[in-house]
Design a protein around this nucleic acid. Sequence first.
DNA 1: GACGTGATGGCACGCCATGTCATCACGTAG
DNA 2: CTACGTGATGACATGGCGTGCCATCACGTC
Lengths: 186, 186
Amino acid sequence: MSRWQPDARERLEQAAIALFVEQGFAATTVPQITARAGLTTRTFFRHYADKREVLFAGDEIPAMAARMMADAPPDADPMTLILDGLETVTRTRFDPRRHDLRQRRRIVRSDPALQERDLRKRAALSEAIRSGFESRGLGPTQAALLAETALTLLYVSLDEWLDADDDAPLHTYIEKTLSVLRDTIA
Amino acid sequence: MSRWQPDARERLEQAAIALFVEQGFAATTVPQITARAGLTTRTFFRHYADKREVLFAGDEIPAMAARMMADAPPDADPMTLILDGLETVTRTRFDPRRHDLRQRRRIVRSDPALQERDLRKRAALSEAIRSGFESRGLGPTQAALLAETALTLLYVSLDEWLDADDDAPLHTYIEKTLSVLRDTIA
DNA sequence: GACGTGATGGCACGCCATGTCATCACGTAG
DNA sequence: CTACGTGATGACATGGCGTGCCATCACGTC
């Protein structure tokens, strides 16, 4: 028998989400979360830098983006790179978690502090993509524009995908959004 | 003689910026700011919702955007609306404040919490534009894309404009950025 | 059996942010 | 001239956030 139950991190996350749903993010205290998880306040902050981070843990997606961009052939077309990258990321990280993402969106929308953190995570992904394009030799303006455009496509499409009740993968929404973007900007 | 010196808000802002430059945002406490401004901690939070807000006070720009979009002729082209709006906003609110904006950017970049607030202000402007386009009858996707694209143009161009040392107005950078965007996406 | 490691508990502490009430200059009505 | 309302500030208490520091204890290793 171990001294502590395993999966402290997961227990903290589940307890936090449950309490956020029950009584809201701001009204939930860290001691409440840790009490439900059977841990102490100090331990919470060892796993998460702050109270919001329990909803945003992990930077696997920026890492995935950086890896894909570094591994792609040097002459790949930038927009193709973005669409292929979005296809892979959404298929593996978004499509299977539609219900979770809806619940998470509902919580995030309920509190400005959570929206700020969400925007920071979005910025982190944008920066990873921008940096990847610069490493591939693109100019600073083009790299920044491509990264921002990729995030715009992802977030605008994600919102519509979460609102819809079909079974289409997120990528089909992204392709439709891109075609609207092309028509609108030209 | 009045009981208190006037311009409490301005004194707080100037004291805060000076201290942020001297010792960093995180290392500066609200009592330090209010002491330098000759006020109390409680008064600081009457003027600003939190410590970060002293750097981001005012939502005149989203309001200006909303007004311009409501006043424009009903048949105006969306992209023209964006470019004209950006031209007016940058000429009146950015071009005359280049030095201040550089200092502000340096402070914001030094602290993640300030970056988050900056992103929230960006999102607020995007939302104002999106809402304006929806009121003008555009579809949700198009409205969201136009708003996000406007913000991308503004922020990407702003960064390059603040890095440069010419005397060109910000809008010339925006036009150049837009042409790069059109070439890149097509 | 001794020792290092790693996760947790426990405690103290400073700062952030808010609620509440008191204070006091100013303007205005009577 | 006085009384009153108004609005900004001061003063105090409070609760939650986040961190530094050290102790504890199971586990694996030597």
